[in-house]
Amino acid sequence: MDTEMQTKMKIRDLKLWYGDFEALHGINLDVYSDKVTAFIGPSGCGKSTFLRCMNRMNDRIASCRIEGQMLLEGSDIYAPEVDVVQLRTHVGMVFQKPNPFPKSIYENVAYAPRIHGLVTDGPDMDELVETSLKKASIWNEVKDKLQQPGTALSGGQQQRLCIARTIAVQPDVILMDEPCSALDPIATAKIEELMDELKNDYTIVIVTHNMQQAARVSDYTAYFYLGDLMEFGETQQIFTAPTHQKTEDYITGRFG
C-alpha cells in the first residue's frame, strides 16, 4: 500500500521559533496526495502553527523564524526564490471563522482567479465561479443570488463559500484550520461530506479539536503535543491502537 502512495508534501526536521520561544521542535511528516490528514492535539501544541507553516502564513509574524525543510512535490517552499503569492495558489487555506469578503458571492469566488490573472472576466469567469461553487456543494443554494453579499449567508454556507473561493484557483493542497468549530452539527456534516468528495482532487490537511471529526474525515492522523509530533499514522490505527502513551491518553480523554 505504501509503495503506491504519492507524497505531496514532505516535511523534514522543521523547527519554528517565535522570538526565543521554540514552538516546534523538529517535525518530520509526510502528507499523502489525495488523502485527508488530520492534526489533533491539545491547545498550544503547535498544530495550527505547523499548518500555517505549510502555506507560509507565518511569514506575516515578524518574530517567527523557521529551520528545516518543507517540501511541496520535492521543492522547498521556504527557498529564497519561491514567490509566496504563487505558493498560496497551490496551497490554499480555509479558516476557523467563516470569513467571506463583504462583497457579492460571485465576487468572493472570482477574486482570486482575477488577481492571479487565471481567467478574464466574462463567460469564462462565470463558468469558473459556477464550477467552483458546484464543487463546494453550494451552487444549488446560491445560484439565484450570486450578486447578494456573501456575508448574508448562514455560517455553514459561508464556510462552503470560502471553500469554493479557495478551490477557484485550483490548488493542490487545501489547509483547513478548524473549519467546523463555529458551525452546528448539520453544517458540520455537510462540510465533512464535502471533504470526502474533495479528496478525490485535492490533498486536504485539517486541524481539528474535535477528535470524532478527525476520526470521521481523515485517512491519516498526526498527534501533536507541546511542539512535537508525537505520533503519525493511519487514522483507524491511531483511534483503535495508538502506539504512544500520550496519544492514548489524549484520545481516550485522560487529560491529567
Binding site: M211, Q212, A215, I238, F239, T240, A241, P242, T247, E248, I251, T252
Partner: peptide, 9 residues
C-alpha cells in the same frame, strides 16, 4: 461515551 483506543478495545 464514544470510547476510543484502549477504551474502545
Amino acid at each position: 461515551r464514544q470510547p476510543a483506543a484502549s477504551d474502545l478495545r
